[in-house]
Design a binder for these strands. Structure first.
Length: 894
RNA sequence: GGGCGCAUAGCUCAGUUGGUUAGAGCGCUGGUCUUACAAACCAGAGGUCCUUGGUUCGACUCCAAGUGCGCCCACCA
């Protein structure tokens, strides 16, 4: 390690971050050992990034949180395993590879399935690791030896195994469902590939005569898509709609399809929209599909693959396109007096991203998983709080979804992914499956088998993530050690898609809860509160920020801005804050080293010889240790970081180092050795406490500073596995700390007085302390050297009961008043104004407190402790009020 | 439309189970190059805690309604 990097230079993270990461890798400190049973295990699974991903700020935050938890637990002595890996991302990858391919003038279909698949594999090899490399720049302590991937051999085996198990348990079935069909590309496309465009359309109203009516009775139905009418199976009205009660169950004549259809009742219908009557076309509309299924109607598909009308329509319409058919249908309705009216209507059209053609919902066969039969333990776990959400509010969302769970459509019409392990027998049309490819039909023994052409939904591999990477279905040692994991850290948007399903899968295969804690990280937004997105281009590139400010600054900024859950608004400038703070730590180290480099050996800390400033610092340090650990236990990472930030800057630097200066600069000072020892002891503690958050700079500094006799160091040469600091009663000095804070407020008070009077900083002043409680004399005398140095005082006197000397300003604290004669610097007018303001403010508080104390009900019902503190406040504030009044009077006399 | 959440300083946000004079960072004002750091130090200004009502001795905190905003789901014949 190059310790001179600290002594002689400014903070430049680029000089050591890469070097240190290599050092950690070489030392194998990120690796967890499943055979080591001497330590408790701690496991976190990465939410596997898509192979198509580049690192964005959402990852930055998400990964930093996980890394902090893992590094913290590792320092606490856990066998910590953070599992890295990638998701093959079926749709996203296929889209990118296809786009690439199309640019060369070749379609996926022309290339053929096998060659296209090979191209995807190649693409993954080439680009898939970019995000993992970027994660290394962020300093993530993944156990890289376990790096995995949802399409590798081992995980594919796991996918195959669970599919077969589920099928054998009767939980996987084939059923009909509507998909988004692109009539130009003649393929199903995913929701991601559909853009909804609002446009001005029309709403056509036309008549359906009631069959057998003597009075020409009819219903009027409104539709935006009259051309689909040939597929109508019924007309629906709301069951409570008084207008149509008598018609429910009657038949209507369909003037276009030239057949009769019934009137049914369904709550799906909105009475106030249109006429309150809806024609139901289950094969061509997502909502109608649900209604049709509920009422057991036949689905009539009236389109060919290219969305032209097929043989189920009357001959004159067959072969027409959707638009041609629409014109022809309207012409017919108008000519035969069925059309009642047409009106303008705004609606949204689903457009295929790639062909720009209007998407047509199309009936197709899909594979489904019966979720209701395997979901129960996942519901129980949340209800009993065995599974906990951070923040808790997500429990409701989770339960709401699980309690209304739908069957999961697990097939996708893609080429990139795990091929569905189902073979259709060409002789008897039944399906066969197996962990090995079947050679004969399970039903009739035929060898004429054809594998299903679809692949599995990408989530069908990622739901196995808690156990598949550790070797499942083999009962490996790693699986024993690292399943279940401890916490999952992810975005709330995939609570259904991923989190809930992992829990379901783990109960199904392992019979156990996959993880006890679910941490929902904040959503990263821009300054206007918009989610970072590619299309908006409002994202902040973490790598750009790392290059500019260093990984530690990026990590620090991300987590300190992000509360548990919620969302965080980010700005490029925010990273400057992190960088400045780390620079502050760097400079503090530089200053310390200046004195630590001296030859004399470091002393152990000695209670009897610690000065008041050191006792205060140690006491604050111990409190900080407790607070940080408590916050981390509760996943309040921003709170932990905030606590540390203020301890380092406000306590250690502004008071600790500043107070130490008067001792350190005097080479023969008797307290010097203990002060140096205290500073180093606390600084080592800071480095340890902060190491999980900002691992690089803490490690770099740790290698530079000397080892302290009061800290224990293992044999490992890295900060990242040193013991994490905890509450240490040895360094608790409650009384001394309280006394020292009196000195601090006295110093601050005098500084404030100096500013009020515009006294130049270098000018020394006299200060006269008037004590109400003479017991404080000893306390203040102990702090005299610091009062002189830090407040710019050259003459400090004690005069109990003194009233205000001429031309002086004052500052008050608990039991004391300090008068500072400022001579001609005193501006009587502005001082009077200030005192009057003070008087008003304090009088208000005093009055409030008095009212409270006179309130009978308050005295009767409030807890005794509250009454005591209120009384004490009252005494204190009225004392202050008296002082202010006296001084105001004294000032006015002149 | 269904579900969930948010509203505190100019900006971004803390504020743990109701109980001192509501905090921080950035920005702003004034002063300082004080031998770690001007990427800093010292001091300061700035808030009817969205509105109204309720519970309570006591509400930024709990409850209800209203207003404004965000997210997820369904998006409409």
């Amino acid at each position: 390690m190059m310790s001179d990097s600290v002594r002689n230079s400014t903070y430049s993270p680029e000089k050591f971050e890469k070097k240190l990461y290599q050092y950690w890798l070489k030392g194998d400190w990120f690796c967890a050992d499943e055979t080591d049973t001497s330590k408790p295990n701690y496991t976190i699974l990465i939410p596997p990034p898509n192979v198509t991903n580049r690192l964005h700020m959402g990852h930055g935050l998400n990964m930093t949180i996980q890394d902090i938890l893992v590094r913290w637990k590792r320092m606490q002595g856990f066998n910590a395993c953070w599992l890295p890996g990638l998701d093959h991302a079926g749709i996203a990858t296929q889209m990118m590879v296809e786009k690439d391919l199309n640019a060369t003038g070749v379609t996926r279909q022309e290339l053929g399935r096998e060659a296209f698949f090979a191209r995807c594999v190649e693409w993954k090899e080439q680009y898939g690791n970019i995000i993992l490399d970027q994660l290394k720049q962020l300093g993530t302590s993944f156990d890289w030896k376990r790096e995995t991937y949802t399409m590798n051999e081992q995980l594919s085996k796991a996918v195959r195994k669970i599919f077969v198990d589920l099928y054998r348990d009767g939980l996987i079935y084939r059923g009909e469902r509507l998909v988004n069909w692109d009539p130009v590309l003649k393929t199903a496309i995913s929701d991601d590939e559909v853009e909804n465009k609002e446009q001005n359309g029309k709403l056509w109203y036309y008549k359906f005569p009631v069959v057998g009516s003597m009075t020409d009775e009819h219903l009027v139905v409104a539709t935006t898509r009259p051309e689909t009418s040939f597929g109508d199976v019924c007309v629906a009205v709301h069951p409570e709609d008084t207008r149509y009660q008598h018609l429910i169950g009657k038949d209507l004549y369909h003037p276009l399809a030239e057949r009769e259809i019934p009137v049914i009742a369904d709550t799906y219908v909105k009475q106030e929209f249109g006429t309150g009557c809806v024609k139901i076309t289950p094969a061509h509309d997502f909502n109608d599909f649900e209604v049709g299924k509920r009422h057991n109607f036949k689905m009539i598909n009236i389109f060919n693959e290219d969305a032209s009308l097929n043989e189920l329509c009357p001959t004159q319409y067959q072969g027409m396109s959707r638009l041609e058919a629409r014109k022809a249908v309207i012409k017919f309705l108008r000519e035969h007096n069925y059309l009642v009216k047409e009106e303008n209507h705004k609606n949204t059209l689903p457009i295929s991203e790639r062909s720009k053609e209007v998407v047509e919902p199309r009936l197709s066969y899909q594979w489904f998983l019966k979720m209701s039969e395997i979901v129960e333990p996942a519901i129980e776990a949340a209800k009993t709080d065995e599974l906990k959400f951070y923040p808790q509010t997500w429990k409701k969302t989770y339960l709401h979804w699980l309690e209304n769970i739908q069957d999961w459509c697990i097939s996708r019409q893609l080429w990139w992914g795990h091929r569905i392990p189902m073979w259709e027998c060409q002789d008897c049309q039944t399906y066969s499956t197996g962990e090995q490819d079947p050679s004969t039909c399970e039903n009739c023994g035929s060898t004429d088998l054809v594998q299903d052409s679809d692949v599995l939904d990408t989530w069908f591999s990622s739901w196995l993530w808690p156990f598949s990477p550790f070797g499942w279905p083999e009962q490996t040692q790693a699986l024993q050690a690292f399943f279940p994991s401890n916490v999952i850290v992810t975005g709330a948007e995939i609570i259904y898609l991923w989190v809930a399903r992992m829990i379901i899968a783990s109960y199904y295969t392992m019979g156990k809860l996959a993880f006890k804690d679910v941490y929902m990280n904040a959503i990263v937004c821009d300054k206007q509160g918009r989610k970072f997105s590619k299309t908006l281009g409002n994202g902040i590139d973490p790598i750009e920020m790392i290059d500019k400010y260093g990984a530690d600054a990026v990590r620090f900024t991300c987590v300190s801005l992000a509360p548990l859950g919620g969302r965080v608004r980010m700005n490029k400038d925010d990273f400057e804050v992190g960088h400045r703070f780390i620079n502050k730590i760097w400079n503090a180290a530089k200053y310390l080293l200046h004195y630590l480099d001296e030859q004399e050996p470091l002393e152990k800390l000695d209670h009897a010889r610690l000065d008041p400033a050191s006792k205060w610092l140690l006491n604050s340090y111990v409190n900080t240790c407790t607070a940080v650990n408590n916050h981390l236990e509760k996943y309040q990472i921003n709170e932990a970081v905030d606590t540390l930030y203020h301890f380092v800057w406000g306590a250690f630097c502004d008071w600790g180092l500043e107070s130490a200066k008067i001792v350190l600069t005097e080479t023969s000072h008797p307290d010097r050795a203990q002060v140096k020892s205290t500073l180093l002891y606390v600084f080592e503690g800071i480095l340890r406490l902060f190491s999980p958050v900002i691992p690089f700079v803490t490690e770099e500094l740790w290698h530079t500073i000397p080892r302290h006799p009061d800290w224990s160091f293992g044999t490992e040469q890295t900060l990242m596995v040193m013991d994490y600091p905890t509450y240490n009663p040895q360094w608790v000095f409650t009384q001394d700390a309280q006394e020292w804070s009196q000195i601090q407020s006295l110093i601050s008070g005098i500084r404030s007085v100096r500013t009020q009077a515009n006294v130049p900083p270098k000018e020394k002043l006299c200060a006269i302390v008037a004590l109400e409680d003479t017991g404080l004399t000893a306390v203040l005398q102990k702090g005299e050297a610091w009062i002189r140095s830090l407040a710019g005082i050259n003459d400090l006197k004690y005069q109990p009961g003194l009233s205000r000397p001429a031309q002086s300003l004052l500052t008050t604290g608990k039991g004391w008043t300090v008068y500072v004669p400022v001579g001609d610097y005193l501006d009587v007018e502005s001082e009077c104004k200030r005192l009057q303001g003070e008087k008003k403010r304090i009088a208000g508080i005093v009055m409030g407190l008095q009212k409270k104390l006179q309130n009978k009900q308050f005295m009767e019902r409030a807890p005794e402790q509250v009454i005591t503190t209120t009384q004490a406040q009252y005494d204190n504030m009225s004392g202050q009020l008296k002082t202010v009044e006296q001084n105001l009077a004294a000032l006015s006399e002149k």
